[in-house]
Simulated scan of single mutants.
Amino acid sequence: MSSSVPTPAQLADIDDEELVRLAVSWRAQASRGDREAFGIAHALEVECRQRLRASQLQQLPPESIPAARPWWKFWGSKDHPASAP
């Protein structure tokens, strides 16, 4: 990878394992004081987080919609029949 901040198109061509490896490598260079490496590491880490977030969202089950109750029974609960009139 060149020493300029990668574009989203360039990052899209990199697989997940390689992306993580590059992010760790560039972050190590940045921690040694390389200012150019900081921007590159940041871009790689942002892409890693976005991919992780997207994959986690795909794993979530669909949200269930609760059954509607009549508006006048807002104080009652189906779980606690003693609180209902």
Rank of each mutant, 00 (worst) to 15 (best):
D16R: 06
V46Y: 01
A84W: 12
R32P: 00
K73T: 08
S2Q: 06
A82H: 06
F74M: 13
A23Q: 01
P85H: 12
R27K: 12
P85A: 12
E36I: 11
K78C: 05
L22Q: 02
C48H: 04
R51A: 03
R32C: 06
L52C: 04
A28T: 15
S25Y: 03
A41H: 02
S31Q: 15
S2F: 14
A9Y: 03
Q56T: 05
S4G: 07
V20K: 02
L22G: 00
D16T: 08
D34C: 12
P62L: 09
L60K: 07
L57P: 00
W75N: 09
S4P: 00
M1C: 09
L19M: 15
R32E: 14
L44D: 02
A84E: 14
I40H: 01
E17G: 04
A37I: 07
I14L: 13
C48F: 04
R51D: 06
A41M: 09
K73S: 10
D34L: 03
D13S: 15
D79F: 10
E17H: 07
R27Y: 06
R27W: 01
P8Q: 07
P81A: 10
L52H: 11
W72C: 05
L22I: 09
Q10N: 05
Q58R: 14
K73C: 05
V5R: 01
R49C: 08
A9I: 12
V24R: 06
